[in-house]
Design a protein around this nucleic acid. Structure first.
Lengths: 223, 223
DNA sequence: AAAATAAGTGAGTGATAACTCATTTTAATG
DNA sequence: CATTAAAATGAGTTATCACTCACTTATTTT
């Protein structure tokens, strides 16, 4: 059940361009950890230096500002989170036919959820930025949203054509599915008490299947 | 279509204990606005003073620290948000029978959504606090969660007894419904582009009904 | 191994933000 | 109207934080 970690792509990205020293790597790791724990504003550069075991000046050697450090952390996350969360649909999953919608939904979401679980810190960071920093939100969404809508849109269209799922506008289908997914991820990220993760996961699949299944209540009334 | 505003309870609360001067009221209003616009950390006390049209010292007259000011804002929100979001179920809605589950869900959620729309600023503030301040989150949740679970739990139990909805654990039902609601609220709060609010709202009801409707996919498999 | 380049250091700096307090202004009371 | 109390003021204090730089240590090159 090995899941890819954004962290790995992270290091991969960096070592492509220039060599990265162990101390610089420690700074990035400490920043990610602290941003996820306390949030960006609540983390000082001296906090980062302390956690990374370096002098504060070292933090500023590669990244000229704290904002640049944040962006250096954010970039690989936004770059890799979409391809993994949204891609591979048409290639792998759709090629083979699934016996039921439930089986299909299960196949698609179990490993996405596993991926999310393996990258909780990264998700926390990206959520904070997207939620409370308007500029950052627009930046992140402009990179993520179009690809996501396109990738998943093609899957949805194929399923619609075969009358396997409800005939609703794609953005509405996506919204309800993502709401369920994020609701689940919120539990992981916020470490809410009294949640049995495994049970929730099976339930998540069931609810998503139910939403997608064509049925009697599908006429959307109102304007 | 007048919906209660937390703002009103806010002023009500304050005027009960002591008299509140116009300038102090302006400070609270400015704080709420700025916290919702920029977030707590990004708002300085001088920002607040400027927006409220008072001297910075005046901000500290009633509230000894910035944190105390935050708590004074947070308290009435948490205190009144639950009774309105979760209550009145058994009293009003459940007494009369609804022709369909859809009608019941519609009746319950339309005014909750309207209430949320009328209090977007307050919701933004409470979400920021709950999302990235662990202490505040526990404080807020300990006040909100138990009441919510209890209030809505009783409604769910009655519906279950009549076999009108799925026989799932209450916390799981709540989670999926709240996920949908929050997914919708996120659009309001983040002002995401390209969303037609009215259409989403009708859709929200439909999805919630679909989730609740008993059916064939309701066995939760997996462990 | 000497020279040159890069990496790392930490005391120091300027700016900003939270918070204080002596004084002034406003409101209440006799 | 005079006196007293409360409210408001804003210049000033302290602390913290992002960021700099002259200098030291490590690494690479010749």
């Amino acid at each position: 059940m090995e899941r890819p970690r954004i962290r790995d792509y992270f290091q991969q990205d960096l070592s492509q361009n220039e060599t990265i020293t162990p101390k610089q790597r420690a700074i990035l790791q400490a920043s990610l950890d602290l941003f996820a724990e306390k949030g960006f504003d609540q983390t000082s550069t001296s906090d980062i230096a302390q956690r990374a075991g370096v002098a504060e000046g070292t933090v500023y050697r590669r990244y000229k500002t704290k904002a640049a450090l944040r962006d250096a952390i954010l970039a690989p996350i936004t770059a890799h989170i979409v391809p993994i969360l949204a891609s591979d649909f048409s290639e792998d999953e759709l090629r083979q036919r699934y016996p039921s919608l439930q089986a299909f939904v299960t196949a698609i979401f179990t490993d996405r959820v596993a991926f999310a679980k393996a990258n909780v810190k990264e998700l926390k960071v990206i959520f904070e930025m997207a939620a409370f920093d308007t500029e950052r939100r627009e930046q992140i969404l402009s990179q993520i949203a179009p690809k996501m809508v396109k990738q998943m849109g093609s899957v949805i269209n194929k399923l619609k054509a075969d009358h396997l799922i409800v005939d609703w506008p794609n953005d509405l289908i996506l919204q309800s599915l993502l709401s369920q997914l994020f609701g689940y991820l919120a539990q992981l990220m916020l470490e809410l008490p009294g949640t049995e993760i495994e049970r929730e996961q099976a339930y998540l699949i069931t609810v998503m299947t139910k939403i997608l299944t064509p049925g009697e209540h599908d006429q959307i009334t109102g304007q």
